[in-house]
């Protein structure tokens, strides 16, 4: 799995992740408060300018944004069908700006920086005794570590179907995949505890 982070040294790369996320939150509120079309148009152009500062090639950007842009366009077209053209244009500009800003932050913030930020945000919850903030980083690491393994398991179960001349079906694929995967939970948990990764209590 490749992350969507892009190496670079632009202004956005150098800003602290906390500031970037706060600015994004502020921008999303502003985008939904503003309802005048010219103003939204200016905001969309600014967002596009900010995204262009990353220096991604057009093809690369299209690859990244296509699925979300497609949903936005479909919904805007549906709005045009059931509502006014002004409303459809508002939806299109608003969501496209927000998408560009969010994508720009994703491209300029590494996974480690995000995890640090989320762990910091979870500290108040830790003080309340609801969770351990460091568990977030640990479990994200676990998930990323086990995706290739689960995928491999899926492929071998599918191949086992073919080898026996059976047609792979959702049910006969999912059930062995779930049971085989979850059965390893005890071993992994024991390994984590043996290494004291969650702190000794």
């Amino acid at each position: 799995m490749r992350t969507l982070y892009v190496q670079g040294d632009s202004l956005l790369h150098r800003l602290s992740p906390r500031l970037k996320l706060l600015l994004l939150a502020g921008a999303s509120v502003a985008l939904f408060v503003v309802s005048s079309l010219p103003l939204l148009g200016i905001m969309a152009v600014c967002s596009a300018g900010l995204y262009a500062m990353l220096g991604l090639s057009l093809r690369d950007s299209w690859q990244r944004l296509r699925p979300i842009l497609l949903t936005i366009v479909i919904v805007a077209l549906f709005t045009l069908l059931v509502d006014t053209p002004v409303q459809a244009a508002t939806v299109l500009l608003r969501l496209t700006s927000l998408m560009l800003l969010a994508a720009a932050i994703t491209a300029t913030t590494g996974i480690g920086a995000f995890i640090d930020e989320i762990t910091w945000l979870a500290l108040p919850l830790e003080r309340l005794g609801l969770m351990k903030a460091s568990d977030i980083g640990l479990s994200v690491g676990l998930v990323i570590r086990f995706v290739p393994e689960v995928l491999l398991r899926y492929i071998s179960i599918r191949d086992a179907h073919y080898a026996r001349g059976l047609k792979p079906r959702p049910l006969t694929l999912a059930v062995p995949m779930i049971i085989l995967t979850l059965r390893s939970a005890d071993e992994i948990a024991a390994a984590i505890d043996a290494r004291g990764l969650r702190g000794q209590k």
Binding site: L4, L24, S28, R64, L65, P67, I68, T71, I72, V75, V91, L95, L98, M99, L100, L101, A102, A103, I105, T106, A107
Partner: peptide, 10 residues
């Protein structure tokens, strides 16, 4: 799909 942009979709 991934990144913060997926949370900007309708």
């Amino acid at each position: 799909r991934g990144g913060l942009a997926v949370f900007a979709a309708p």
